[in-house]
Design a protein around this nucleic acid. Structure first.
Lengths: 216, 216
DNA sequence: TTTGGACCGAAAAACGAATTTGGTCGAAAA
DNA sequence: TTTTCGACCAAATTCGTTTTTCGGTCCAAA
């Protein structure tokens, strides 16, 4: 019960801090701003949190919690694994997009840092996308890949490029390069299975497994 | 012939600039540094390039060219579309990794910017990875997804999370949120096809297409 | 056609003073 | 005991000013 009241005030603090962070950015909001926003003294904040970074972390954690719980909820609601997977990705994107709108000052500052190489980056992405498209076209013409992707051939290459960039990021922010090769092989394996021509796939997989009776 | 000599010197300039950028970072290397490095006067640089940003762009472009050409070369050498796709991803990762080592001062500075939320980020990734693993396990137990991924169930979820982050990034750096939903659906569609239980897949795809004769 | 030295203006570094801000402490209020 | 607050401190930040640096230009010389 005692802890309950504590938590109420803690949440109040986080709420106010969140609002201020969104409005003015993290750096520009002072502890006094937060304290003033809830009509309390500054040092009161330190009764509930031990540092500003603590508050910041808690706010971010709360935001993440909201994203995750909405994703989690959407996944639970979905019936099939396929729908779960779709729910997972789409819900997260939507949720993130909403957050990005709230923190548009912050995301604006983030863009400023990247601005210098953006034009080169997008140009490179274009080349890469073209190459990837050629590979996919080659695969389709080859009979290796399914013709089902033909209509997606304008969108799929750039999507794959974006996805791979997520993996490439791991090379830089973490030292997990050694694992990355196997990680890469793992996802590319699934990707290829997804692209493969079903008939082509079957002729192999039927030979390796005994599921023929289910097929016919 | 005249242009040839021009290009030689231009390349020499880029080479020296590249070295200095790697060693000291872009901001810390001055035009005089570059000029001194090749025993010429500063204004000579402006005979060949019209600004420092021009040189910077050219160096980056050169680096990208190296990455792309090695990727492109590896793709060409590969025979099948599958091998091409694998060559594409792995070669790029290796190439980027090498570059990251050269520019470790630069990549070090980049990490400093992200450091503040890294610990929260990795924690969130963990939760997301777990949820994704549950989905995959559900799909396997369900019969929706192939049992082939059972042994990759420790690595695949985190890989998918990393990949999706690449797509999420597009929400922030570019305004292409509206497209993103269809983009997302596109890649998830392929992914699901790749995960699907072949027998399950066949019973549907055979019904929709008339490729039965090829199967048998 | 190239190169280098002198030069310019804007941007950035240097720097010390003034102010702000994160954080602490003990007393007082509840 | 639990919670709040004002006073206080040290470190960081800001500010205003001066100085230096650096990107870029110009012109003469090679």
């Amino acid at each position: 019960m005692i802890a309950a009241k504590d938590d109420t005030i803690k949440e109040e603090i986080l709420e106010q801090a969140q609002k201020l962070f969104q409005q003015f950015g993290v750096k520009k909001t002072t502890m006094e701003d937060i304290a003033r926003a809830m009509g309390k003294g500054k040092s009161t904040l330190y009764y509930y949190f031990c540092s500003k970074e603590d508050i910041f972390d808690a706010v971010i954690l709360k935001e993440m919690e909201e994203v995750f719980s909405s994703v989690s909820h959407a996944v639970e609601k979905a019936g099939s694994a396929e729908e779960k997977l779709k729910a997972f990705t789409l819900t997260k994107i939507r949720s993130l997009h909403r957050k990005a709108n709230l923190y548009k000052i912050v995301s604006g500052e983030m863009q400023d840092n990247m601005r210098c190489i953006k034009h080169l980056h997008t140009e490179y992405d274009l080349r890469e996308t073209r190459l990837l498209k050629e590979i996919l076209e080659f695969g389709v013409g080859n009979g290796e890949f399914t013709r089902l992707i033909t209509k997606e051939l304008d969108i799929l290459p750039s999507v794959i490029v974006s996805s791979l960039r997520g993996l490439e990021r791991d090379v830089f922010v973490e030292g997990k390069y050694t694992r990355l090769v196997t990680r890469m092989e793992s996802i590319v394996g699934i990707l290829i299975r997804g692209l493969q021509n079903t008939t082509h796939l079957n002729s192999r997989s039927i030979a390796n497994t005994n599921t023929r009776k289910q097929i016919i």
